[in-house]
Nucleic acid binder design. Structure first.
Lengths: 188, 188
DNA sequence: CGCGTAGTTGACCATCATCAACATACGTGG
DNA sequence: CCACGTATGTTGATGATGGTCAACTACGCG
């Protein structure tokens, strides 16, 4: 199935009936706070699974929204259980996935929720760039929700980086990053 | 096995040879940042498992340190795999545990890493108190590492709560909390 | 053309980090 | 028993950072 940017795979509290294997694209997992502001707790990219809540038969804890056009397979949880009975190895794959998510969650906390806004944004850009030096970014609002800062701060910090020549925006939501220099800032 | 307060079950990078079922006590999972400061990413209490990294055959990602005298069972990972072959239900228990950890991780991020220091500390105290109104707390340094603030801020904020009558310290590392009032502050 | 959304920027203020001084408790060795 | 050292907590002064509120710009679309 193909989802356009900005569509929700599921929402907090929905009965968890499917898991979603992401073939291509990008999905954010959002959690809403008591005061209504939102916090992005994880990104799911190619090869990862959204909706793992369904494994333990409880409602979805997050809202999953695409950040890019996303192509994925939606698998009813019943089918997962049938597959599981047939293929004894599936558990371990699921365990592997869950462990991967947990690792992501811990990194998210230490990398993107600790230190100054400058350092956090630098870390985010470095990790989005991966081995390349060009990467997809997102609206200032999304950047803010990932880093736990306001959209204004996200905007200002991006502007700062651009002024310093560390980041060059290459059209909407795509930018070139001076990865090494950013890595420096990331450790501050 | 019984571990005294402050002993490490394992450290970041150690080959992951055991999982630890916590029978009684409390364990913190610590991650160290590039600049050497530490961040506590999760607490493990009675009935939960430390060292799940071992399931996927990679070194431990955290350092696990007891915060209280802790009684636990240390199970070699080989035994887990043998048990798993014998008892086909074990996977699902492990999946359940991992999912639990993931839930904890997400809550930690949204509750304890978002908002003002006052709100975060209030949320921590409320969640430590659970249904009771008395709870174990920790050194100011540990409180700070949980909330992502300095020990000074942790100390000041605790002092504030005490002055306002929201918290009464009952001997070392134990306190009585005005849970309802704290819940108010938690939403700020 | 006018409207709505997203981004930018400025001014101001609250919060928190930092640095430093001091207090308190505890254990060790003289 | 007391003096001392260390670890932990408290408190104050100060400055940097980021939140808030508001004005303004840029862009796309009906």
């Amino acid at each position: 199935m193909l989802f356009a940017t900005g569509s929700a795979l599921y929402s907090t509290g929905d009965p968890a009936a499917h898991i979603f294997v992401i073939r291509d694209g990008l999905v954010k997992l959002v959690q809403y706070l008591a005061d209504g502001t939102q916090r992005i707790v994880r990104l799911l990219h190619q090869g990862t699974i959204a909706g793992l809540d369904a494994l333990v038969d409880r409602p979805y804890e997050h809202t999953a929204v695409t950040l890019q056009p996303t192509f994925l397979c939606r698998i009813p949880i019943g089918a997962v259980h049938r597959l599981d009975a047939a293929c004894p190895d599936l558990h371990w794959q699921l365990i592997e996935r869950l462990k991967g998510s947990l690792h992501e969650a811990d990194e998210w906390l230490t990398e993107l929720s600790t230190g100054s806004a400058r350092a956090r944004l630098a870390r985010l850009l470095v990790s989005l760039a991966g081995t390349a030096d060009e990467c997809e970014i997102f609206s200032r609002e999304n950047l803010g929700a990932m880093l736990g800062v306001t959209t204004e701060t996200a905007s200002r910090t991006m502007a700062e980086f651009k002024r310093e020549g560390l980041v060059t925006e290459m059209g909407l939501y795509r930018c070139r990053c001076a990865v090494e220099a950013l890595r420096e800032i990331a450790t501050e």
